[in-house]
Amino acid sequence: MKIHNLSEKPSILNTFISELRDISIQKDRMRFRRNIERIGEIICYELSKSLHYKPHSIKSPLGSQTSELPQDDIVLCSILRAGIPLHNGLLNYFDKADNAFISAYRKHDTSGFNSFKIEVEYLACPNLEGKTLILADPMLATGQSIVSTLKALQSFGTPKKIHLVSIIGAKPGIEYVSEYVSTDVILWIGTIDKELNSQSYIVPGLGDAGDLAYGQKLQQ
């Protein structure tokens, strides 16, 4: 797996990630969601440089101009529910893309909070055969959600190219995903933290992105 860690070169992206982490700013849910969306737009711009382009002649009221325009047939797939604002950010730029949504969440068992499996209950997806799949998950913690989602998508066809998009990832989770996916899969990520805590949350991370964006949920 190829990794593009956008934090390796300072940019305005650092501002938005810092605000996502800041416990005083996190109280503003609208700002939290908007920052995720803006990060999605920034990553989308960087990702777009890797796509395939073809010259097109464009007519204006005063003449014509040849421009290189993207040719990839894109499908955006997001993991609910924290993935919604990130999905919106990507969709703001890839507005002609088809869309897929999947509910992949941690289902805890009775042996403890850290004992869980990833449960997939809902999936809506177009045909992926020969498409460019962009799979978005804001927090790449253990990596199990991304792997479970890729497995669930297999029945919809084989994509020509797979891009993974995350805001914050943990090294153990990235290593786990890297062992599963092929070497030509590309991960676009805002920044990488070193570790997971005993509950498999990213440290320092930012907490539960879904709860911060949409409110706390009852554990079942």
Rank of each mutant, 00 (worst) to 15 (best):
R21W: 10
L153R: 04
A104S: 08
M30E: 15
P10N: 06
I43E: 10
M139F: 03
K194P: 03
R31P: 01
S48G: 06
D22Q: 07
E8Y: 09
D73F: 13
E121V: 02
V120D: 03
Y105T: 01
S145M: 09
T183D: 13
S182H: 14
K161A: 10
I12K: 12
D73G: 06
I36A: 04
Q219K: 15
G89R: 12
I118L: 00
S111W: 15
S148T: 10
I3Q: 11
I186M: 06
L153V: 01
E179V: 00
Y214S: 02
F113L: 14
L123M: 10
S200V: 00
D72T: 11
I167Q: 02
P55I: 02
R38C: 00
L150P: 02
L86V: 07
I174K: 06
P70M: 11
P204V: 06
H108T: 09
R21T: 03
A141T: 01
I102D: 05
Q26R: 14
I79S: 04
I74E: 07
E46V: 05
L80D: 07
N92E: 09
G215T: 10
S11W: 15
V165L: 01
Q71I: 15
D72V: 12
H4N: 06
S148F: 03
D98T: 01
G210R: 09
N99Q: 14
T110K: 13
I189D: 05
A141E: 04
C125K: 05
A100N: 02
M30T: 08
N127Q: 15
V75F: 09
H52F: 05
N114W: 12
V75H: 10
Q199E: 10
I192F: 05
N127E: 15
A97F: 13
I12Y: 14
L86W: 14
L206I: 08
F94P: 07
I102M: 08
L212F: 08
Y201C: 01
D98S: 08
P172R: 09
G83Y: 13
T15N: 09
S60Q: 07
I168F: 03
I84D: 04
N88P: 00
R106I: 09
L86N: 13
N99P: 01
E68C: 09
K9D: 13
M139P: 08
G157V: 08
S78M: 02
I42G: 03
D72M: 11
V147N: 03
G143T: 04
I167F: 04
I74P: 03
K54F: 15
P61C: 02
L206N: 01
I118D: 02
H4Y: 14
V75P: 07
S155C: 08
R21G: 02
S115C: 01
R31Y: 08
V147W: 05
N197G: 00
H56R: 14
K96R: 13
R81T: 02
S60T: 12
L150N: 02
I39F: 09
V165I: 04
T66P: 04
